[in-house]
Structure formats: C-alpha cells, structure tokens
Amino acid sequence: MLNKKLRNAIILSIIIFLCLLIVTVSLRDSDKVKGIRAKALDFFRPIQEKIHSFFYPLIKAVNTVKDYFGLIEKVRALEEENSRLLKDYSENINLKVENNALRKLLGVKQRNKFDTKLAKVIGFYESRWQSEAILNVGRSDGVLEGMGVITEKGLVGVVILSSNSSCRVRLINDPQSSIGARVLSSRKVGMVEGSLDKKVYLKYIPKDDIIFRGDIVITSEYSKLLPPEIVIGRVKRVSVSKQSPYKEIEIEPFVDFRELEYVLVVTR
C-alpha cells in the first residue's frame, strides 16, 4: 500500500517537473518551440482534414437546426437590409465613378487590390481564453504569420503560426487579438479587441466622439499586413462609464466563426 502511494507520488512529481520544464523552455526558447509546433501541425494535418471532412455534414446539419429557430427574424432583418442596400446601390455607383475620375485628376493612387489564397478550415477551438482555427494552407502556399484571414462577409482573424502545410489563425474574438480599426462613417480610429466573454469591442474611442449603433467598423490603413477597409462588424452597443476616458463599444462581427468552412488568406 505504502509502495503504491510512494509510486504514485513519484509519478506525479515527475509529471509536474516535466511540465514545469516544458513551460519554462516554451517561454524562454520560443523559436525552437515554434518549430516543434509547426511540425506537430504538419504531422496531424492529414488525419485532421479527413476527420473534418467526414463530420462536416453533421456540423452543418446541427447548425441548420439551430438556425431554423431564428429564421423568421433573420429573413425580416435581411429584407430590411436588402431594401436599404438597393436604395444605396445606384448612388454608390455614381459616387465610385465620380471618385475614380477625381482621383485621376488629382493624381492620387487608386486603391490596391490584394491577392488571396483559398483555404479550408480543418480545425476550430474556442475556450474562455482562446479562439483559434486551423487552415489547410501553410508556408508552401505562401501563407506566413501576420497575414489576414477573411471571408466574403468580413475579417476572420490573423495567422499566428504557419507550418509547411497548415496554419493557426487567431480569430478576432480571441482575448489576445488586437487589430487596428476605423469607424466607416466618422473615420475615428481605434483597436478592435476580443474578450474573455467572446465578444468583440472597439477600444480607445474617446468619450466625446460620436458613435452610433449600427455604424460599420473596418480595418484601418495602419497595419502592415492587413489590407485596409475590410469590414469587421457593426456597432451593437455603445456605453460610457465615469471611470474610463473611452467609450465602451461592442461590435457584432459579420462572420459567424462557428460556421466557417472556406476562408481567404490575404497573401499580399
């Protein structure tokens, strides 16, 4: 009995020591650990991709059932949005033609288009402290750390680790995510950050600035790798508190992270 207890104590001590050693090494020598992480991602990619493909119809079916209950509300909101967008459409075309003509006249550079690489989401992990996805593209496809990931709806996140054939993406609702952003209508600049409750906030907008519910938030032009003017989300709630010099602005992202299937990595 004593022998058994002693053996258990030794096992636990060894495991704790090993874990402390690994944590220390990973914090001190992050480059080496990054290499090992990239290799682990490459190693598990084939089986991960197979499992994902096999179960994806089930994920889709469950999500469809969940969506069904909010369908009437969703359709009504979409109809409203559609009529508003139709009204804006012809005006926008006129503005675009006018804008291009004026840019030409003034010698201002036209907006740059960016290159993208199509990728499939093969992994997804969301906990209180983390929101990440794994894509089936990596360094061999020209995908590097820091590159932005988008869908047709808007910004998804940023690549944080790229291995040879896959990569990890930090989603914008991850508590460690921080992205330069701009309010489309007022042109105010702030930072879009994730949080522990998985909500997305626009931070560092002074109390005196006017921000409306429904304002669109886009990426700012101050990021090296993320292209500007990619839509992030819509302002959902604006509040002020006496303790903070800034407004508390909650953003509703346009992208539903749980339903991601294919994304685009902005490679240039």
Partner: peptide, 22 residues
C-alpha cells in the same frame, strides 16, 4: 499534443490533463 497544436503556452494543458488522470 494539444498544446503543440493549439495551446498558448506549451505544457499547461499537459499539466492539467495529467492531474485529471491522476
């Protein structure tokens, strides 16, 4: 394995799951 694939700090989940098993 989880830490290497998705974790923030390598070794943390290893420690937690080992304690769970123990």
């Amino acid at each position: 394995v989880f830490d290497l694939m998705l974790g923030n700090i390598v070794g943390v989940t290893a420690f937690i799951y080992a304690i769970d098993g123990f």
